[in-house]
């Protein structure tokens, strides 16, 4: 059970949207995390630097948050085996489908890309079905 936090969630969303706008307007890049991360391997040197900088900010800012305000609430119910399976699926699937929640779900929808709309509908429906099966069919 988690509490309903519409204001904090919307404010966080505004920051995420602002990040996507900054990256697009300054570098002409899509703020898609799986693409930025996956593109690190095999990218030429000049293309690698901005990716590393972005990822440094992405990991570093929450670290700074935790140091200044205490660690944010986090609960991970999945066990080690589930985490490994889920990680493999997320890594492989986001590369195969050319995007994740950020690249398709935020940037793609903001650009009204039909591909991203299709991908977002499919991964959200699949994720909801997965939770339904795990929680109410198997876990019931």
């Amino acid at each position: 059970m988690t509490s309903f936090t519409p204001l904090a969630s919307a404010a966080g969303g505004v920051l995420i949207g602002a990040s996507a706008a900054v990256l697009w307007l300054t570098l002409g890049r899509i703020a898609g995390i799986s693409g930025i991360l996956g593109g690190l391997t095999g990218a030429p040197g000049g293309d690698r630097a901005w990716r590393l900088a972005f990822l440094t900010g992405l990991v570093g800012a929450p670290l700074a948050w935790a140091a200044a305000l205490g660690p944010p609430e986090v609960r991970i119910a999945a066990g080690p085996l589930t985490l490994v399976l889920a990680g493999l699926l997320v890594g492989f699937g986001t590369r195969l489908g050319s995007g994740c929640t950020s690249g398709h779900g935020v940037c793609g929808l903001a650009r009204l890309s039909p591909r991203s709309v299709a991908a977002t509908v499919v991964f959200m429906a699949t994720a909801a079905a997965t939770v339904f099966v795990a929680r109410h069919v198997i876990g019931g």
Binding site: A86, G87, L89, F92, G97, S98, F123, T126, T130
Partner: peptide, 12 residues
């Protein structure tokens, strides 16, 4: 790709 990603996202 979206199906595989959704499976993993839902699991973890």
């Amino acid at each position: 790709g979206a199906v595989l990603f959704g499976l993993g996202w839902g699991l973890a």
